[in-house]
Design a protein around this nucleic acid. Sequence first.
DNA 1: TTTAATCATGCCAGTAGTTGTCATGTTTTT
DNA 2: AAAAACATGACAACTACTGGCATGATTAAA
Lengths: 314, 314
Amino acid sequence: MSKAKRLLDILLFVSAKKKFTAQEISDEFNISIRTVHRYILDLSDMGLPIYAEQGRNGGYRVLTSRLLPPILFTEDEAVSIFFAFQSLLYYRDLPFNTEIKSASHKLYSSLQEEAKRKVDQLQSYIAFWNPKRAIETPLLKAVLEVAIENKNLHIHYESKSGTTTKHIHPIGVYAHDGLWYMPAFDFTKQKILLFRVDRILSIIESEENKEIFVNLKEWFSSTYEHKQPIRLHVLLSSEGVRQCKSDPNLEDLVVIKEDGTGNIDSIIDKGELNFISPLFYRLGVHAQIVEPKELINILRQQAKDILSLYQEND
Amino acid sequence: MSKAKRLLDILLFVSAKKKFTAQEISDEFNISIRTVHRYILDLSDMGLPIYAEQGRNGGYRVLTSRLLPPILFTEDEAVSIFFAFQSLLYYRDLPFNTEIKSASHKLYSSLQEEAKRKVDQLQSYIAFWNPKRAIETPLLKAVLEVAIENKNLHIHYESKSGTTTKHIHPIGVYAHDGLWYMPAFDFTKQKILLFRVDRILSIIESEENKEIFVNLKEWFSSTYEHKQPIRLHVLLSSEGVRQCKSDPNLEDLVVIKEDGTGNIDSIIDKGELNFISPLFYRLGVHAQIVEPKELINILRQQAKDILSLYQEND
DNA sequence: TTTAATCATGCCAGTAGTTGTCATGTTTTT
DNA sequence: AAAAACATGACAACTACTGGCATGATTAAA
């Protein structure tokens, strides 16, 4: 076997093992101890952060976490990785910030000048715009780790009504519109609630969980099932059509007529009403709601509140 | 110089050159032609897609695009790259889809079983939720490339008023809320307009541009300057405070008093009024607008429209 | 058709690199 | 003091690499 291949095998072996003696490597790979010492010198020259502890019970230690075998990326693949990193730039906190930085640095420094310029250019021609939050989410990584380890948590949480303590089992973590959310099973209320990770003040890890809960994907799909189906029937002007087409909740429901106007006639969940009512408020005369009455009442009540609030300012 | 290092140099040299003869390499690196042939055999064995063209004017050709020197990633760095890729999953179209897939595959296949499980787990515990659009954006990559090459474009665009033809210079491309947008200088209107990339029906590349326009970052910041400053003064209940704190446009403006209530008193751009009015509509009695009158009028007018639209349904 | 420019492959001897063994030190723990 | 580990040097045996030469095959140009 060639020296290069053997060195690679040893590199992977020792970076996984972290602590070892020359004798162990000698036995594992059937090479003399003298050669092991020579090899370790080579690895160290190649940049592997390895150091020796002298004396009895001594040995070698490797500092980095486990290494992958060397990978040959094409320039385009490297650019695509930078592109992906770019999409994360607009989050204030991320679970893998330090790793992203070091991976980024390794990639960038092995690019040729020309490719470096390409990457720099990419970053000035493309952006992932998110409202960049000033809100800190310091517990994000901790919470994600607990979720992956399937453990339960006691948290201090800042809710509408003040600070409360909760005993929960996290389902997962997701980002939406620049904020991090965590659906979790609340043992007191015996159901899954949605928490904002930045509002978690402190966590105490508790016991590991034996029960099996839904995972994040299942939770997503179940959340979007219709629990209280209700008929939504709306007539739209052509401007109303255009705006509804830009709304993720409604775009698939709009039926367009030949003259450009359109309508929505579909079954939606009652819980969505509060979510879509601001849109119909904004649309005003461009959307004539036929059903449900509940939605009309929400709009009317809100309109009355506004008018009474501002009538004396006239 | 060791064989491994020389092979690596040659690998980088030929993957950049794409077509070459054994003689060229022999001259470049001062090695015999016989050895060049042996080296190329080695590179081919290592998986480099290289093939020979026989006969006079023949030579070697390399198929992949330019390669980077081999990179040693730690397991955590690899995980962070997968994490970044995860954040792109919710876009229907991306400029680097094929490269992302191949990079992903290279990384995944060199992970150990344990790390593979970790990556799989990560994907079931974390998500970047975006309204997953059904809207195709087939011209995204083409448009981005034109922007990077600093060229002008003629486009067919589907706007409010129907299909139009425009002569533009793209500034850049950005994603927001699952859709792709392109600010571009419109030569007819002599100003920068914002286009939705999915509404571009076709493009014709035209001449390269000599003039220098703003870049994407500059455009972003200039767009958020105050062009028509106006005073926004609002009194908030504690619930009003809570909700404003969740709005990216307002969170930094809210001043909280000791009793939990608060207020906003700040200078904003007049153009933002239409954007923030739905929030104050939703807040209803939790937000008492003191200034500007324009905002109050928007709210009152809208409320009246709604009431008159639905009064007969009572 | 011939010739020149290529790749492809085998052989061999000389050179360069790698390995194992032995020897000698040093450091640290028992 | 002994044992267990790293550290390093010398040297001979072994292995791998290299260049040169020869031969063949394929293709394009003269």
